[in-house]
Amino acid sequence: MESPSSNLLRRGRWSEPGRLYLVTTNTRNRVPLFRDLHWARTVVLQLRKSDEDRACRSLAWVLMPDHLHWLIELHDLGLSDLMCAFKSRSSCALYRAGADRRRIWQPSFHDRALRREEDMRAVARYIIANPIRAGLVKHAGEYSHWDCVWL
Rank of each mutant, 00 (worst) to 15 (best):
S91A: 15
R102S: 09
R89A: 14
F86V: 11
L74D: 01
A113I: 09
D111I: 03
D100R: 13
S91V: 10
M83W: 06
I72G: 00
S90R: 04
L74W: 01
R112E: 08
F109A: 02
R115F: 05
K87H: 10
D81L: 10
M83H: 03
A99Y: 04
L74I: 11
F86K: 01
S108Y: 06
D76W: 11
G98M: 11
E73G: 02
R101W: 12
A97I: 08
M83F: 04
I104Q: 00
R115P: 03
H110L: 07
H75T: 04
F86E: 01
L94T: 03
D76V: 07
Q106W: 06
D111Q: 11
D76L: 11
L114G: 03
A97S: 12
S108T: 14
I104F: 05
S90N: 10
R89N: 15
A99F: 05
A113D: 03
L82K: 00
K87S: 03
D76F: 06
L94Q: 01
S88R: 15
D100L: 10
L94G: 04
L74K: 00
P107T: 07
D81V: 10
R89C: 07
D76R: 15
S108G: 14
I72Q: 00
R115I: 02
G98H: 11
R96E: 13
S90I: 05
G78F: 00
R103S: 13
D81K: 12
D111T: 05
S91P: 05
I72A: 03
R96F: 05
G98C: 11
D100W: 05
H110K: 08
H75Y: 13
R102M: 08
H75N: 12
L114M: 13
W105C: 04
F86P: 02
C84Y: 09
R103L: 06
D100A: 12
R112M: 11
G98F: 09
G98V: 08
R101H: 15
F109Y: 12
D81W: 08
